[in-house]
Amino acid sequence: MGRYVIRRLLQMVPVFIGTTLLIFVMVWGLGDPVAAMFGDRTPDPATAAQIRHDLHLNDPLIQQYWIYMSNVFKGDFGNAWNQQPVTDLLKTAYPVTLRLTIVAFLIEAIVGVALGVFAGLRRGRFFDTGVLAMTLIVVSIPTFVTGYVLQYFFGVKWSIVHPSVGEGAPFKDLLMPGLVLAGVSLAYVARLTRTSVAENTRADYLRTAVAKGLPRRRVITNHMLRNSLIPVVTFLGTDIGNLMAGALVTERIFNIHGVGYQIYQGIVHNSPATVVGFVTVLVIVFLLANLLVDLLYAVLDPRIRYA
């Protein structure tokens, strides 16, 4: 187990270098950020040259990457488009997005699995059909539509919640954005769980458990659920990263100053430091979430063992 974890951690190093280089090159390819700083006015050449020099924009790409990465290992992620240190942005944006992700993840996991289990146990009945139809609707509506609609009705028309998230992103403000963000994933989780549960209800080991006379609760939680959850856990694990990275639309709609918003700003203002900094941390989150999922397999399914 320990050796497995170490091997996986070592594998992350080339992945890390590869992704950061790729992102760096792509943002660099967007073009020269200096022209945009002057708006519709033509930059005066001397000032533009001075700014390019300060930002190392005249050095070859690979050297810029080297300067950037060596600074990163010193804990300096460079400056964002508005001269704010990216580390400051990371410090303020990640906790906010993390809170949003936690809210969305809890909604997704708890409601999704619960709906899936009940639907799976009542396969073909009214509740099951209802869940299937509802999830289909949720999957087919784009996030920004659900976002604006919920915001308008709950925030403006009925004034039940704040339509936008206030300073510091308190949890009560994050409920609605969390629901919107979790929506599509929730539907997938419910459907995955339902299929898996429905399949396992007819498995041999489950019939044995029932025949042994085990109480129904124990049959469902220990025997059926544990086996049914493997595909769901895989999905939930990778979804942590997706929720963090994919909150771009939701964060814009609900005024959440999180990761998605900062990455968007970085792209619009052509700031490699912002984009690479944020994506680097996201990459680490993805890698760790994947590792966690793989380790969870062993917990759920005794047949899986890592050497």
């Binding site: 604006y148 915001q151 308008y152 925030g155 403006v156 004034s159 704040h162 339509p163 936008s164 964060e251 814009r252 709609i253 609900f254 005024n255 959440i256 100053h257 918003y261």
Partner: peptide, 12 residues
Amino acid sequence: TDNNTAYTDLQA
């Protein structure tokens, strides 16, 4: 983050 959100907040 978005002028649409600001407008919604004004309405609310």
